[in-house]
Write a protein that binds this DNA or RNA. Structure first.
Lengths: 366, 366
DNA sequence: CAGCGAAATGATAGCGCTATCATTTGTCAA
DNA sequence: TTGACAAATGATAGCGCTATCATTTCGCTG
């Protein structure tokens, strides 16, 4: 069965058996490793032709390509990405930097990115900056050292150094999550300030006159949402700083309840609560229910992001829908287009938002 | 200011300015790139010494090390990981393969992994298999081609090919999420079957006689939890297959409500619901509330995983606490130990679980 | 069937780093 | 001071692949 054996560049004869070999010595490993040269030798072509057949099949004749593919299959050849990256001076890596992996918002965005990248040659690599600009800087450095094809990064608020690194970077960049005027390259998101302002307007329209705002984890986007609330209140001439209750602690449902408790002890006449995210909103709702406060009659509750559970809650909770999965998908699509030479027509997209009015703020009906 | 300029191997003189150069041509890029040779020349040592100073500082004299560090800093040298991987035949990458990035369970595990890896030299790389064994296989291949130092993979149910690849792999492997008898290498998790069985026992102890079970996304772990429920019911002589309602759709809070609706239309006398995860449990609770069904008096509800919101809900929801972050942390620690030569004493850890009894099943008190 | 341009293939020379072993320098006891 | 040994450093030779350009083969026209 000659077809089941072959001799590699070290004059080492392989049999099917070789697959089962176990050996810890580096040298042995290397001798055993199947390289592009092995494939070339078996297929009676040059290494270069094998390389082409694998990366640009259209540059190789059909006959040759099929022959090579058969050998690749038979030997189980897998290209070494390190060697490829070194020789080509670039990779198919697209780095994605998000501030949190536990926050549903970012996992939805990631889902969109993964889905859109499916079937493409791009390899997604996730970095978690844990809301730390320093960690973000470290990640950018790490990613850039890998010569990625592209970088997807969250937000507008990079450190000065990070910004300098990104501006000088030779790869394409998509900023996600927010809208702003000076993208490094491309951008897709929405205005957190406007979204929050619109949500506050909605509360006012529903007849609430003393709306409060609770917020946790004061990252830049939270801050801008808070600012949207402030602006809307000032516009209506009802701004009262006592009605803003915040904490630097990360958001949880429990925390939502605690912030409401804090809020109501300070300003008991509050008649609506704009929650900076949906976890807080859910916690706020539970806390109100525990206190026997009627929702939406006595207090209205509005969340932010419109996670799936908002519609299922009892009462269902009004929230600001943000298009997270779409943001992920489109960011990846922009990246793919840019890297494929079809420069996207619009490189700075505002996805907007949508106020999903539900029972928790529908006082009129009642 | 000679100190601010230097001449690289292409006899190209750098100034601080060079950092701002923009040029799309590969050749220019390469000429501009600072390499280990550049550092060596500036520091009057060999490239090898620079390499050592950066990777094994203790193998280089203090004086030399400091000199090199200064040059590295001044030139902004960053090693090329591709070249390093190619020359060394290995990397500091630890691949992590999880079936979902949106599921809170896995994001908690990831958080633990990230936290534990902080400050170490290991570079975490996340892969998302989307509950597909084929995608998992593709990911394993991709990771292995990168010669990772280690692989962290979820569950016991790999495809045959994947299993063969993992067994033959030269890197360390930690399996997470479950307990089993034949790890590829190391393992840490808990028994989903036992956890679910214990939860069912709890319901029976609370006096519930007609407990049902709802489940979505029938992955292997869900199936084993279902099996735990079945076993417990059979042991009590009350098993009734009509009380199991499942769907292949992924879990959501809304779906929890729908499954309960379905369940109650089929077997209205159900007096407790074991939910295969906490999202379903929350949805089940909302649906019961909407129908005016008293919890825990008429129907008891128990979740699985004990996400943070379970304790905050109203009523608070009983759930099976699983030690997800600890699992992430410990898996990474085992990996680190194994790679650092301190072979862990126990290589197959059962983290157990804990029934967190709360209002939603505390009928006795009432 | 010659001759031409395009398509297909090959030869060569690195990419930037590290394993290995050789050489130099330093340290300390006798 | 000398010699023996360890510590520090260096020279060399790739790792496996691809960019580049040279060469060969093919398809077609006149």
């Amino acid at each position: 069965m000659i077809a089941l054996s072959f001799v590699n560049r070290h004059n080492f004869r392989y049999y099917r058996l070789a697959l089962d070999f176990h050996d810890n010595y580096l040298k042995w490993l290397r001798i055993l490793k199947i390289t592009i040269e092995d494939v070339a030798r078996e297929a009676n072509v040059s290494a270069m032709t094998v390389s082409r057949a694998l990366r640009n099949p259209e540059k190789v004749s059909t006959k040759t390509r099929e022959k090579i593919e058969a050998v690749v299959e038979r030997l189980g050849y897998v290209p070494d990405p390190a060697a490829s990256a070194l020789a080509a001076g670039r990779t198919n890596v697209i780095g994605v930097i998000v501030p949190s992996v536990t926050n549903n918002v970012f996992s939805d965005v990631m889902l969109g990115i993964y889905e859109q990248s499916e079937g493409s040659k791009w390899q997604i690599q996730l970095g978690n900056s844990r809301y730390s600009p320093l960690e973000e800087e470290r990640l950018v450095r790490t990613f850039l050292s890998q010569k990625p094809a592209g970088l997807i990064i969250s937000g507008l608020d990079q450190s000065e150094t990070t910004a300098a690194l990104l501006k000088a970077a030779k790869c394409r960049i998509v900023q996600i999550m927010e809208c702003g005027s000076a993208p490094y390259d491309m951008m897709i998101g929405f205005s957190h300030l406007e979204a929050s302002r619109a949500a506050t307007h909605h509360l006012l329209e529903e007849g609430y006159r003393r709306p409060a705002c609770i917020s946790a984890r004061l990252d830049p986007r939270s801050q801008r949402r808070l600012e949207g609330y402030r602006i809307a209140c000032r516009e209506a001439g009802i701004f009262d700083p006592r009605r803003i209750v915040t904490t630097p602690r990360p958001s949880t449902v429990t925390l939502g309840g605690e912030l409401v408790a804090d809020l109501l002890s300070k300003v008991p006449d509050t008649d609506a609560i704009l929650c900076n995210n949906d976890d807080l909103a859910l916690g706020a709702m539970f806390e109100c229910q525990r206190r026997g406060i009627a929702i939406p009659e006595t207090i209205g509750i509005c969340g932010f992001n419109d996670l799936e559970m908002m519609a299922a809650a009892n009462p269902s909770i009004t929230s600001v829908r943000t298009h997270r999965m779409e943001m992920g998908r489109k960011s990846m699509q922009m990246m793919d287009d840019a890297l494929s030479g079809k420069e996207p027509k619009v490189s700075n997209i505002d996805l907007g938002f949508e106020i999903m009015v539900r029972e928790s703020t529908s006082r009129k009906k009642a």
